[in-house]
């Protein structure tokens, strides 16, 4: 009987490692190059998401803005924070592009069109990305050590996942709601290649 305690302890250790240790250990963490505050930009500058994360002329999504976008306002310090000053000194003045780490980067075989979702289906950015716009700090970028995918793909409390199941669920729901022939009905079940490339 006493001997079986080792099995029990092992079981507990395994459960602990699997439920508590593994989810942390599977991800590597890297800080973003600059502690950018979405909140400050949204509140003080009144910036909307698409002011910086805009579309190009052909309708493709430009993603994380490049340095010239930042420099158009921050050529010289606008405030007095140390973060801004160091950002200008490190990146703007030497013209060095910050190496941002993309939280929401989908794998190579995924085709996702921002403009179809934002412009045609009128989705809010927060519906997939969570309430990123009000965050005061950038989270560290967490990357799956094996697959290389960003942790955001699996979602988190307050932030929906971006796995295929999440896409499919949303499309099924909107298709069920939409009347036949409407855009939401079109967004229903389609071939694999509709979202893969």
């Amino acid at each position: 009987m006493r001997r079986n305690i080792f099995i029990a302890v092992g079981l507990l250790a395994g459960l602990g490692a699997g439920w508590a240790g593994f989810p942390r250990a599977i991800y590597s963490r890297r800080p973003q190059p600059v502690d950018f505050s979405h909140k400050v930009h949204a509140d003080k500058a009144g910036a909307k998401c698409e002011d910086c994360h805009g579309f190009r002329e052909d309708g493709s999504f430009a993603g994380i803005p490049t340095l010239d976008k930042c420099a158009s306002c921050h050529a010289a310090p606008m405030g007095s924070t140390a973060t801004e000053k160091s950002f200008i000194d490190t990146y703007v003045t030497p013209g060095r592009e910050p190496q941002w780490l993309s939280y929401a980067r989908q794998p190579e075989n995924v085709y996702f069109s921002h403009i179809t979702h934002v412009k045609r289906a009128q989705l809010k950015c927060a519906q997939c990305h969570g309430d990123e716009g009000s965050a005061d700090h950038l989270r560290p970028f967490e990357q799956d050590r094996v697959s290389g995918y960003s942790r955001d793909i699996w979602g988190a409390p307050g932030r929906p996942g971006m796995k295929m199941d999440d896409c499919v669920n949303c499309h099924r729901q909107s298709a069920a709601k939409g009347a036949a022939g409407t855009l939401s009905a079109q967004a229903g079940e389609r071939g694999c290649l509709d979202c893969h490339k």
Partner: peptide, 24 residues
């Protein structure tokens, strides 16, 4: 102890996630 922890791990997401990750 090892057997117990192996059993325990099977009851966690870890092995299944590793399989998925390997496929990805």
């Amino acid at each position: 102890f090892a057997g117990g922890s192996a059993m325990g791990l099977l009851l966690t997401p870890a092995p299944w996630r590793l399989i998925t990750d390997t496929a990805l």
